[in-house]
Design a protein around this nucleic acid. Structure first.
Lengths: 251, 251
DNA sequence: CTTCATTTGTTCGTATGTATC
DNA sequence: CGATACATACGAACAAATGAA
């Protein structure tokens, strides 16, 4: 039963269209939902007619895309299809392009700002007249930590995540959070401290929340622009420094 | 009894997901740029001290993220880190959530529209006073095909891609194109024809280009909203149909 | 055009760690 | 604790594609 290659009527011709596609098709055809268990590797070998190694590579491929989630010693389930692969790719692109200049990071920041501005109307519409105590608590924590000269990275992330949560578009919220993750992951690797402006950024978050709950979209947009001003200024300073260094490159 | 692990203190404990990280670190440390060749699988086995199977899995993982690009019989090069993995993930999410309703597709369309609106100022600033003959040619082709009742999928994609090209943010352009791809890949799988409104959509593209070249950001935003009106209306109709079906589910 | 070396693609067999019952 | 099922990892062999001699 070795010779699976000599079959004349194409059994092996569809192997080039990777096993991962077959597994995706199997998930769709069996109506599996996120969290449901998919067949074990051995069962996939039988059903798809390929070896364990190929199944394993395919499952690994789907796992990196968060289409499936493997649990050691337990099994594999349909994943939640988060934007984690996007984050990983763009983080690497950001640190890879650091040699040239900070173009990749600048593009991420511009996109974050543009997205926040574009969703302004939906955000204020979703927050006007809403209690929103967790967001207010996050702002208080950020102000307290900034007053002590401490950073507030987890609070910052959760603030933007919860701010976008009630707008009725999970994808938009995930995308904003993904770009936040990229931003936060790239900045420290480039050696940019930027420890200043902590209080200013914390206050901007408070202004954003206040504008959203007041239903003032224009004030929301102004606060958002103010929120990005420190990092934008830092990027411009770094770009100028890179331009100066380019004028007299030591080689 | 192979025992290739001579180090007594747990060497094999972190082999799980670190091989891919090692390869990424190697790319960064050797200053490789997109298109440069990375060591062969055999060389990676030696340099990283792992088996070829592990190296293959790691390379496969990085290939699905478009961090590397594998060429059969030739070698592996640093990839261009496109947003293809994002497209693949969200397309699968879109067709997977088709059972419930068209929520995933609706979110993609909303995000496309929001992005186009958010980038309006940059687009008009980049296009005012620009010759832009290829875009005008694309609009003419779309109008001609729509007049004959034909679709114009490639022209539509290229139009949006070239419209965003000169704004000085490649990431934004790639993201808009990625969401276009998701949109275009999900719609036909759901069996939504939507063959009508072809002429209307083609004309909207012409209005978008005219507004951009005239420097009229407000007109650009109006034309963009008009451009998305047919698909938005179709999604609302499908949502109403799904709501009716939910009232009397046949089971 | 053919031959050949190089490199990735696929498969098998086996050993080991880990989680669940 | 032991037994079972599963994922993780290693190594060897062969197939297929590419490019150069």
């Amino acid at each position: 039963m070795n010779a699976p290659l000599d079959a004349p009527s194409g059994v092996a011709r569809m192997r080039r269209s990777t096993t991962a596609e077959e597994i995706k098709r199997l998930i769709l055809s069996t109506r599996l939902r996120p969290g449901d268990a998919i067949p074990t590797e051995a069962e996939l070998c039988q059903e798809l007619g390929v070896s364990r190694s190929s199944v394993r590579e395919a499952v690994r491929t789907l796992a990196t895309l968060d289409i499936v989630e493997v649990r050691h010693g337990h099994g594999t389930v349909v994943g939640r299809m988060s934007l984690a692969p996007l984050v990983e790719t763009l983080v690497f692109r950001g640190v890879l392009s650091a040699g040239d200049d900070l173009a990749a990071l600048r593009e991420v920041v511009e996109l974050r700002c543009a997205l926040d501005l574009a969703l302004a109307d939906r955000v204020v519409a979703a927050h006007v007249g809403r209690p929103g105590d967790p967001l207010a608590r996050l702002v208080k924590q950020m102000l307290a930590r900034a007053g002590n000269g401490q950073t507030f990275v987890p609070e910052d992330r959760q603030f933007h995540s919860e701010l976008l949560a009630p707008i009725g578009n999970r994808l938009a919220g995930q995308l904003v959070t993904a770009f936040w993750d990229i931003h936060a992951a790239v900045v420290p690797r480039l050696g940019l401290a930027g420890a200043a402006d902590l209080l200013r950024t914390a206050h901007a978050h408070g202004d954003i929340l206040a504008a959203a709950r007041a239903g003032d979209a224009d004030a929301y947009r102004r606060a958002t622009a103010e929120h990005y001003e420190p990092v934008t200024r830092m990027l411009e300073a770094a770009a100028r420094a890179a331009a100066r260094a380019e004028g007299a490159p030591a080689a």
